[in-house]
């Protein structure tokens, strides 16, 4: 009897529904702080979807960097600029109608695409037999970042086997990118105004 309902499906619906509802909440709320709040819950639920799909490291990463880091930063920005005239910025009705029309059409197209490929919408029969320690553990990901692919031990292409299928290069590029971005962000938000402060407590 329980076979008719599996935990994966149940949790998927749960997480997908919360994620979608709160994503819609981001769209439809006009208060910027509420938008941020909805976004937190939406991204948190999508982290749940990641866990469900077996990508536990990415899910935790999503929670840590996206939700814990980026969004706190965002809320911080919201608070820094939170004045009453900016808190609620309404979009006029004409824009709403237009954008909802376009958005609805886009969603239809995407959904059509998502469900039209038979390889994608056929259920995977052997799911219960899958054991995926590799993708669940962070170590293979780390190994892939250093150029070693644990999941492709049987790789026959000699070029790929020699570590070329790893992610060492993109990893380095992203690291440099991050560094540059941090410097750039610090430059952009650099102080424009200096307050001469007399006698700091003295």
């Amino acid at each position: 009897m329980l076979a008719a309902i599996d935990l994966h499906g149940f949790l998927f619906v749960l997480f997908a529904l919360t994620a979608c509802v709160f994503a819609a909440g981001v769209l439809f709320s006009s208060n910027i702080v509420r938008m941020a709040f909805n976004l937190v819950l939406s991204l948190g639920s999508s982290a749940g979807l990641f866990f469900l799909a077996g990508a536990e490291f990415v899910g935790a990463m999503q929670l840590m960097i996206y939700v814990g880091g980026t969004l706190v930063l965002l809320v911080f920005g919201v608070m820094l600029t939170a004045q009453h005239r900016f808190l609620e910025m309404r979009t006029n009705a004409g824009e709403w109608v237009l954008s909802l029309l376009v958005g609805g059409a886009l969603l239809m197209v995407l959904l059509q695409a998502a469900f039209s490929v038979s390889q994608w919408n056929t259920p995977y029969a052997q799911r219960d037999q899958v054991e995926i320690d590799e993708s669940k553990s962070a170590t293979p990901i780390a190994a892939a970042l250093t150029g070693v692919r644990v999941d492709k031990l049987e790789e026959t292409n000699p070029r790929l086997r020699a570590g070329k299928s790893g992610y060492l290069m993109p990893f380095v590029i992203v690291s440099m990118h991050l560094l540059v971005v941090l410097v750039g962000a610090a430059y952009l938000a650099r102080p424009r105004m200096a307050v001469r402060q007399m006698r700091r407590g003295g």
């Binding site: 309902i5 979608c20 999508s46 995407l110």
Partner: peptide, 27 residues
């Protein structure tokens, strides 16, 4: 429905996210 979660279902959620995001950027 529950028994047959496939890639397509994930893609549908992804599509919803995408469209919501695009609309957010637009409006």
């Amino acid at each position: 429905l529950l028994a047959t979660i496939t890639v397509s279902h994930y893609l549908a959620v992804g599509a919803f996210f995408f469209v919501t995001g695009v609309l957010c950027m637009a409006t």
